[in-house]
Design a protein around this nucleic acid. Structure first.
Lengths: 332, 332
DNA sequence: CTGTTAGCGCCTTCAC
DNA sequence: GTGAAGGCGCTAACAG
């Protein structure tokens, strides 16, 4: 169906070796022969068979990236940057969505490995030894992000623990003395890789315990609004709700709005991630910002460098900072 | 590096043909030989080389999907559904982002073709004959969506013209008699494939012209807020702004908020797409809803059916309906 | 039942 | 400068 180098060889009355020399302009071929072959190839719209090339060259110029989903804006932005950098460096990417499902992730990883991707950017849901040894045995370059593994896999993200501590500091400074921390992923502890939620959780606990007179609660379940409800009568204007992600903060704000509870007048609210839809929300939600585009770009950069056998740092942490909105400003 | 069927053959003292029979459990092999081969393969963690398989089988079990971007929620949702259906049917997908850039789209299409993807789901930015003939010549199954080509390419989306007419009808019914239609993509007319924006535009014009006493304006430029400003002193509470997409409606609402112009008291506002972030917005934006998950699923379904040489409809239109919020409710 | 052979499309020595 | 041959890893048709 498609024109092959063999056919060109026949048409030009030469052998495939010569055609190859012309096509990949390698030395050792008469200029005229080259001209002719190139012309014929051009006319016939010859395009090399990428798979066949990959098979012999041993690389596919393909990257795989596994994400939980792209509903969370943070991940769709990350993908954008990743894809752009990959393209600039000559790679095309498989995007697969694990939905935090360990089985599915495993299935996908195996599939990507079978397809001989040159490297994988991985947001891991699995976390056990068996999984890691599969990755290691594959000898495929891998860079993790947004969740850490135990083995020697390079990692890029932010300093989550510090970021939450900064958030708590900010809230304390605003005069808040009673905090409710909402982080549903914590409920999957032991069942799933929740490295980042745990880092944030640890940061929260430490920061709170280091503060005299601080009261705090943790909500770690899927149905977090129901639990929040039971806590509401213990709150006042010196209370604030800190969410481990903007997506929860948005839900909480909506829930509070529906109940005519005013933010920040009656209770403070703070998110995390600074996803871009926040700009449309009233009141502006105080949150933690970090350059996710940079993460995406660096992620691709690191992975490709690793593919090229360059040394890359085992950990790359991107800067973060609290962005003050109007949702966590206690009446002092 | 990785174990091959040849090595298994040697280890088992048989030939590759036999190994192949065992691995792909084909008939004509002694149960014991099969057992042994399977056991050895299992122990060594043998996995077939997907590329080599593809090369000989003539298919790659790979789909390509080209999107403008995944910032617009409608596209990330669509991808989710597409990816899920593809996976269920045994395919993995390349996601490439054209950013509406015709050159880039072309480059990507060629790349996907070189990689011998089994099919392409295409949101086209290009629209000329040359582009279409490239697609046709490739003989690769293609299904378009969200923008139409002229050639015989199956298409799936919604009835955009009708949807805007329904929107206008709704606004008229609410008592609006002066409409401002905002659709920035229209400015790229002639330069880029804007099939859908044009359909919506046509629907708008027809619906307005069919209505006596209707005044209307079109804003078709990137800097639409600036143009909107010049029109604001010609509006009153019987005026409404109709946006060709929710993303513009969100910007407009923010802009109006900043100017303390009340929606819908002073002016009506309506969007299109019903992207999921709308649920967090106040006032609730009236918009047009359609099941984008269904589009994503059907898109994959159609494409795969086409790959399997089944007949598929040249046009598939998904239902839509106006969702009433509080942003376009004239004081009657 | 199993081995042999040929081929998918391309690249890469090694002779001539 | 060019041809011939072998191989990437797997499948498939044909013998035996």
């Amino acid at each position: 169906m498609n024109i092959t180098s063999k056919q060109i060889a026949e048409l030009c009355g030469v052998t495939r070796g010569t055609v190859d020399r012309a096509l990949n302009n390698r030395p050792g071929i008469h200029p005229e022969t080259r001209e002719k072959i190139l012309r014929v190839a051009e006319e016939l719209g010859y395009r090399p068979h990428f798979l066949a090339q990959s098979l012999v060259k041993g690389h596919t110029k393909t990257l795989g990236i596994v994400l939980f989903d792209i509903h969370n804006r943070i991940f769709s932005q990350l993908f954008h940057a990743f894809e752009a950098e990959a393209r600039k460096r000559g790679y095309i990417v498989y995007l697969v969505l694990s939905h935090r499902d360990k089985e599915l992730e495993l299935e996908y990883i195996n599939n990507l490995l079978d397809r001989r991707v040159d490297g994988i950017a991985l947001l891991p849901a699995n976390f056990n030894k068996k999984f890691e040894s599969l990755l290691l045995r594959s000898r495929t370059p891998i860079v993790t992000f947004g969740n850490r593994l135990n083995g020697p896999f390079p990692y890029i993200w932010i300093d989550d623990k510090q970021a939450i501590q900064d958030s708590v500091s900010f809230l304390i400074q605003q005069g808040y003395r009673r905090l409710i921390y909402i982080s549903p992923p914590l409920m999957r502890k032991g069942k799933e890789n929740i490295h980042v939620p745990e880092q944030r959780y640890n940061g929260f606990i430490e920061a709170c315990e280091a503060t005299p007179d601080m009261r705090f609660d943790i909500i770690a379940q899927k149905n977090y609004l129901a639990e929040l409800e039971t806590l509401m009568d213990t709150t006042d204007s010196s209370s604030a709700i800190l969410c481990s992600s903007d997506v929860y903060a948005l839900e909480v704000l909506k829930w509070l709005n529906d109940r005519k509870i005013k933010v920040p007048e009656q209770i403070g609210l703070m998110g995390f991630d600074n996803i871009d839809v926040l700009k449309y929300i009233n009141p502006a939600i105080t949150t933690v910002d970090y350059n996710v585009n940079e993460i995406g770009t660096r992620l691709a950069d690191l992975l490709i460098n690793k593919i090229n056998n360059q040394d890359i740092p085992s950990e790359t942490l991107i800067a973060h900072h609290v962005v003050e909105g109007q949702s966590a400003t206690a009446m002092r």
